[in-house]
Nucleic acid binder design. Sequence first.
DNA 1: TCAACGGTTTTTGTATACAAGAAAGGAGAA
DNA 2: TTCTCCTTTCTTGTATACAAAAACCGTTGA
Lengths: 230, 230
Amino acid sequence: MNTESAPHAPTATRTAKALREVLEEDIAGGVYPPGTRLDEASLARRFAVSRTPIREALIELAASGLIEIRPRRGAFVREIGIRRLIEMFEVMAELEAMCGRLAARRMTPDEHARLVAAHEACARATESGDPSAYFEANGQFHEAIYSGSGNEFLAEQARALQSRLKPYRRLQLHVRNRVGNSFQEHEAIVAAILDGDDTRTEEALRAHILIQGERFNDFVASLRPRDGAS
Amino acid sequence: MNTESAPHAPTATRTAKALREVLEEDIAGGVYPPGTRLDEASLARRFAVSRTPIREALIELAASGLIEIRPRRGAFVREIGIRRLIEMFEVMAELEAMCGRLAARRMTPDEHARLVAAHEACARATESGDPSAYFEANGQFHEAIYSGSGNEFLAEQARALQSRLKPYRRLQLHVRNRVGNSFQEHEAIVAAILDGDDTRTEEALRAHILIQGERFNDFVASLRPRDGAS
DNA sequence: TCAACGGTTTTTGTATACAAGAAAGGAGAA
DNA sequence: TTCTCCTTTCTTGTATACAAAAACCGTTGA
């Protein structure tokens, strides 16, 4: 497909794109924790540009839901409460399930090959015990299913949401034995798709994603004693 | 809920919001047909503002997928092929089905009342034969289900997509007897929700939306003899 | 001590100015 | 005539300047 609009479709200028990507990573990476105020002047100084491209990048970030722009007040890194995160995983599960159902019916032999290749990459990463390699291969695996759905709009939606959840999914791979379990779930998904069994694929994928949400939930619960969930 | 961010969550400034809404309507209404180039200077003249707020509105429109910004080339109204439109309806059907499944389980008596009220408004609009009143009441009806899902993120996604499909849904209401059929489908949906039957609600809603996509497809097919579907 | 008021300062929102790339149009050669 | 190259013009992208609103802060009064 086109390399232009991978996870994020709309990019105004090249520098705004670059700015947005750096800011995304910083927000995901905790450089700007939730609630942080992103003031335009500081960002302009940091990137050695004027406020104009900064503002444009902020608007894009707001559109993707990462920050919130309160008129005349400024841009704030959005608090994503556990509640909302679980909601997002629920929706993600449904989108992936839908992709899977369609992919089981529609994938071409070529696409099957790509899926299997990604699955084998996951296998190698699992054996070598390299979580970040697994994370990467896992991305390819799911991408194969998105594009295999034959519904490009659906695929775009799935990519966009996956991208928003990326930092949390990454975190969650550190949970005990999650990589191994994830790989086994993939195994079932691949089998169902190769069988062309849409219902089985759908259910396996939904469960696969929902488990991630639950594991994440457990993980968070083990960190803090209590939270008011927005 | 908050009146601030109804269908679209992120709005930078108040004037950018106003600009975006007008442009959205113009694009939907055919003032700017697909492929049209939106040059900043003309828009600035039209709205009697500088290019700055225009650019910000365009970036938001690009983020919502209505236009495409090609760097250094300008903003173009996006062509939405029949193919893509059907894909969008497919996804919408799934989102609504999910809302329905959750709503059937989770809606409070208050929310039930609001749903029924919207349904009755639909009934009045059907009897009076006023399509635009029906369109409005129909929006309330679906909104009741979105917010009744108890998953605010899901509700936001549903609203956003519904907003993008709005012009096409509106068009489609002119199809012979579509309003009457739509109302009957609502009837089944309300019954299923009041019964708390999640599976029945899910299926009724999915069918309700998919039919819209199909009817729209028929409608388009009846207009042009042939199309290459991008 | 605390709350309310007013002025100062900072920050956002908008307009304008400038730079650089793309499109358009014309001149010249084949 | 038609293709190519170059110049001109126009449009976008970025920087800066200005206006207005919000935040800040010290003062004053109870």
